[in-house]
Design a protein around this nucleic acid. Structure first.
Lengths: 196, 196
DNA sequence: GTACCATATGTCAGAACTGACATAAAGGAT
DNA sequence: ATCCTTTATGTCAGTTCTGACATATGGTAC
């Protein structure tokens, strides 16, 4: 079983979905911490079905093409339950923005500051979006969020990780940009004046 | 040019290194935000040389096998400078631990809490290691850290991102574990007593 | 009428990466 | 002697993922 397989099972444990629906979910909420294109999802569904983790039934529709709706089996649910408590195999972090920071000392300082300000915005916007979702969940799902055996608690938990992550990323970008500009507006005042 | 190519150039812009040295660096400091095995590094070095970004010279050694020491070229340095200020193409986040949290509502609560406590420790230890490095850098490199055109500033900047990341991860793991155990020691007191 | 869009399901070539296999020199341990 | 470890460089098969190609239905916009 691949991790993508468990991502799909995680969605199907909440509701029955078609391959197309799964693709949409992967762009939306679940896509915040796992993502996949339909070109990965359809073959994976076939493998899951072959392994007995899911089954499908064809649903005929009038106003749009027919679809295959997948549901999780008892075996699929059991596999998911067991996988969820196994410590993940530590996978190496790969963050291209941090890699760029590693070479920022060679770069044009003005362009570098602009780039990090831009990334700060990107992460800030994602954070704002998450905070909206959080407010909505806390208002709408109130009691469920205290129950770790509710799927809503689980969804909320993943959102909280997203919030911490984006906050950390945005603050770090701001610190990098400030550090670069702090230096420029200090010792390098003359060069800056000459340029503008 | 691949991202791995820029990771290698980032290291070679600081000092000349052999393929073996690069592999070691990828396990250590640089490995905190980008990593690669030697099976990726040797072919990539060949491609970089073919593209004119690096050159190598063979260094003969007595007490160990001969080695190829690579150095960055002017073209390589220029490519790196330009790449460093281009906003990264947003790549989807994939965090298996968060994916597990998404299905934690189905899991055995006791095992789940244990798993998240374990992950909290792992991140906590990595954080402690980073904090040690940070103290060392701040003591040893003091003045350089205020100069964004120093490679030491760049190294320090990446370390700071690592610290924020691990802190966020560890705190989130603790929150998840607390949430699960908070519930168990409350409403489910009886079940717990029966089990132990 | 035709061009585009959302829904719906699939395949395939190529890139990036992992883990195993392969070779070799020199030193240290048993 | 034999084995293990470190240094050193390489290949290769298989997995995961991306981006493009491919096809089909039915509604809406021009």
């Amino acid at each position: 079983m691949t991790t993508l397989g468990y991502a799909i099972l995680g969605l199907l444990s909440r509701e029955d979905l078609s391959g197309y629906d799964l693709t949409q979910r992967m762009k939306g909420r679940v896509g915040y911490f796992w993502s996949a294109r339909h070109s990965q999802i359809y073959p994976e569904l076939a493998r899951l079905e072959e392994g007995g983790y899911v089954t499908h039934s064809v649903v005929e529709q009038q106003e749009r093409p027919d679809k295959k709706v997948y549901g999780i089996t008892a075996e699929g649910l059991e596999a998911l339950r067991e996988w969820a408590v196994q410590p993940p195999v530590p996978k190496p972090t790969r963050d291209e923005l941090v890699l760029k920071a590693y070479s920022v000392w060679l770069a044009d300082q003005e362009e570098a500051a602009r780039m990090f300000r831009g990334e700060e915005s990107r992460h800030g916007e994602q954070l704002a979006h998450y905070e909206e979702l959080r407010a909505w969940m806390e208002g709408e799902w109130g009691e469920d969020l205290a129950n770790p055996e509710s799927h809503r608690f689980a969804t909320y938990a993943t959102l909280r990780r997203g919030i911490t992550y984006e906050m950390g990323a945005a603050e770090w970008c701001r610190w990098v940009a400030d550090s670069i500009e702090g230096e420029r507006s200090g010792e390098k005042e003359k060069q800056r004046g000459a340029r503008s």
